[in-house]
Amino acid sequence: MVFVSGALISFFWTPYNIETLAIPQRLQTPTAAHWLGTDQLGRDIVSMIMMGARTSIAVALLAVGIGIGLGVPLGLIAAARRGSMLDEAIMRGNDLIFAFPSLVIAILITAVFGAGATNAIIAIGIFNIPVFARVTRGAALSFWSRDFILAARVAGKSPARISIEHILPNIANLLIVQSTIQFSLGILAEAALSYIGLGAQPPTASWGRMLADAQTLASIAPHVALVPGLAIVFTVLGLNLMGDGLRDLLDPRIRVART
């Protein structure tokens, strides 16, 4: 939560401008002026973490958006046309995406389109599609056999209308919970991509790149390497706990795929 509000505040204000470098003031330990010290280019780490939170959240959020936007309709279609060639094709397609080593594909995508936040979103988003498709299909199937759906069918509603009007609202809770999980995984994935230099590019701040930049400094100025790592850990931890809480709150019985 702290990081989310940090990210929100960063739109209006950060303690220091991270686009301005102050190399003589680099690698300072925490002081009153710089609460968490400065990094290797003399930038304020608090400001960097705030801006980095923005990047992480934006990338993970949009990647989840891709997953929901494409995965949920595919899952609904597959469930509505259960057992058909279409269902088979969608599910096989899912398996196929799962079969690809995700990081390798991310590297190839950035090799084709260049490194950057947008391509990180696409690379992470692609692997969210089968997750949502699978969860949606599984949950939707269990509703297709329920009485109220049968009633709707008898009333002559088309499968598309049933999917949208009756099934979607019923599986929404599940999707929200799955989203929080994919969101936290997205933050980890963004960090990993940025760490190997494939995520957001400077001057955009990114936790993964902060870690990569700081790793050789770990033995000189440990705080520079420690802070972004802890930021990732706490954010993901917070999101996962939030996901668990949501699940308990919304429906303690639902099952969520954690892959």
Binding site: T20, A115, Q201
Partner: peptide, 17 residues
């Protein structure tokens, strides 16, 4: 660093790795 220095004089250099 150079991109930051160029920004100071108004040149906006987009970095492409």
């Amino acid at each position: 660093i150079i991109a930051a220095q160029l920004r100071e004089v108004g040149i906006n250099a987009e970095i492409q790795n």
